[in-house]
Write a protein that binds this DNA or RNA. Structure first.
Lengths: 337, 337
DNA sequence: CCTAGGTGGGAATGCGCTTTCCAAGGTAGT
DNA sequence: ACTACCTTGGAAAGCGCATTCCCACCTAGG
């Protein structure tokens, strides 16, 4: 059905070997006259190399696998975008899988990528790391067979990647909020089995305690918009939020902050006078909120890009740490300021 | 390096043919006793089929290619998520490419997918369709060679897919806004070379005119958040927005609406009393805005899912049309209501 | 008891390409 | 002028698997 290399070779009156040498960057360059004849033939026939066959023969597929929790989550889609940029125009294709944070599917994805002989596997987002023993084992074998693996966002033993200084950035944010004069804090911690959420909360609370401030409450919940909405709703109902004093709510990520704001507003409290809110990530829509919301800017796309570039390099896996920076906006204005 | 089928066969004391038959759903089922022996051997050796080799031998890759403008755009990431669901657990992998709306890269992506012998290609988002002649040609050849192609969101001649009734939904929204009592409209049309933007504006304005209402202004701009921000800013500066009467701004998509709201607010106008805003798509964060913003809900994920399922089916390419529904929220409340 | 039909495993071929390995021709060095 | 070496194109051997034949054996029917 499709035109094969052999067809091109015949058309050009050369051997398949020669045709192959001219049509892809081989180290051996046939004479220009012959090369031109092959190129013309390929063009005329509309030849497309069969990437599968090439991969089989070369033992390298030109594929990179990316595993994310949820591609519809701006956190991951930004990273995915960066990864694509990082891969560049080298004809490397991206294979994507969303796992919904299910270890089973994560493992399946790794196996699938191994099957497809991807040159590298990128893992984005943190995992609960209890009993992902199988995952680690699979990745190790993948690496033994020459595959590259890089984590993006979270570290993993024995793998390179670019990670985030969640704790440090959270501490910086706490610092800024203290400087603003906030003293009464509530923490919406999200799912503490996730390293990301844990690091952020620890960094934030740690800095608070260094300054002699103890949060009124630290409450866990889903690491999602609805998690923020429900947890915040609970706190309002319990009277923790909406007391006479302004309370500053630190949410472990931005979408939780969005949910929090809606929950707070629905119960008639004022933002930020009654309840100040800060998030984490700086997702794109955040600046268009009213009030605009304070957060920690994470160069998500940049991180993805770096990870993408990293797996394209030769050499051994490096490990980079990227830091975020607090962005103070209206949602944390002090009452009366 | 990796363990091959032949290794498993030797370990189990059978021929590669038999091993192959038991390890994948072949029509010929070897005896249970032998099958078990093979499975055990495969398990013990940690065998992974080489998907490349399988693809080559079977002439089917277990791959589906998805082309989007920008994976970081919630519109597309929602679709991508749906597509993955639609593909299901059949071991089909997704190859993703973001083209940044560049016809060149779009073509390159199609070619790459052809090279990888993807079983299907999904094209999301509308293209300018001027001079994508080459694209159409490439897709045609792909189909001739047995590839399936489906559009998602926009139609394309000679390809199935699931499309959106943009015009109809926009008309419905116009209808609702008229019922609310709005009579003074401004339209932020986005990039009218995109069929999606064009259809929405035509549907909206058409319905208005049916009711004898002519928009104050229809202004083009980028089909992005910043496009909305700048265009709206211009309109405020020109005094079109912020007149004594409440003006309802229809934006061709949600992110434009977000930009619009910020621009309007920055210039001291009240939402929705001075300027009412309506968008299109119903991206997730919209309900958390203040005021919550009116839009047209598009079942993005659903559309992706349907497209994903569609390319998994046998039979000829179907063509589905999905409609959206107006969602009235606070951003279009009538002044004084 | 003999044969037609069926069943199950293995040898061999091919999927489309890359890459040794060869051989032939050309060049340079002594 | 002859040998040694480099260059270049082609033949052929895989890459790892699916699958078509083919053959041996077994069952059932007459």
């Amino acid at each position: 059905m499709a035109v094969r290399l052999a067809d091109v070779a015949r058309e050009a009156g050369v051997s398949p070997a020669t045709a192959s040498r001219v049509l892809n960057g081989s180290s051996r360059k046939p004479a220009e006259e012959i090369a031109e004849r092959v190129r013309v033939a390929a063009q005329r026939l509309g030849y497309f190399p069969n990437a599968q066959a090439q991969a089989l023969a070369r033992n390298s597929a030109g594929l990179v696998g990316l595993i994310v929790h949820d591609i519809a989550d701006p956190y991951f889609s930004s990273i995915a975008r960066g990864v694509q940029q990082g891969l560049g125009e080298n004809g490397v294709q991206l294979m994507l899988t969303s796992t919904g944070r299910d270890p089973q599917r994560e493992l399946a994805a790794v196996r699938a990528f191994m099957s497809h002989r991807t040159d590298a596997i990128l893992l984005a987002g943190s995992r609960s790391q209890q009993e992902d023993h199988e995952l680690l084992e699979a990745l190790r074998r993948y690496q033994d067979n020459g595959g590259r693996v890089a984590m993006v966002g979270q570290p993993l033993p024995a793998a390179g990647g670019v990670q985030l200084d969640n704790a440090g950035a959270a501490a910086d944010l706490a610092d800024e909020l203290l400087k603003l004069g906030h003293r009464r804090f509530a923490v919406l911690a999200g799912d503490q089995s996730l390293a990301t959420a844990r690091d952020r909360v620890e960094g934030f609370v740690g800095k608070l305690r260094d300054a002699g401030v103890e949060p009124i409450v630290i409450r866990e919940g889903a690491f999602t918009r609805d998690g923020g909405y429900h947890t915040a709703g609970d706190l309002v109902r319990e009277g923790v939020l909406g007391s006479d004093e302004q309370t500053c709510v630190f949410c472990a990520n931005d979408v939780m902050a969005l949910g929090t704001m809606t929950a707070v507003r629905e119960r008639g409290l004022r933002l930020p006078d009654d309840v100040a809110v800060a998030g984490f990530d700086d997702i794109p829509t955040l600046g268009d909120m009213f009030p605009s919301v304070t957060t920690v800017r994470i160069p998500l796309e940049e991180i993805g890009r770096m990870a993408g570039e990293m797996v394209m390099e030769e050499g051994t896996a490096r490990r980079l740490v990227v830091s975020g920076h607090p962005v103070l906006r209206d949602s944390t204005r002090r009452r009366g300021a």
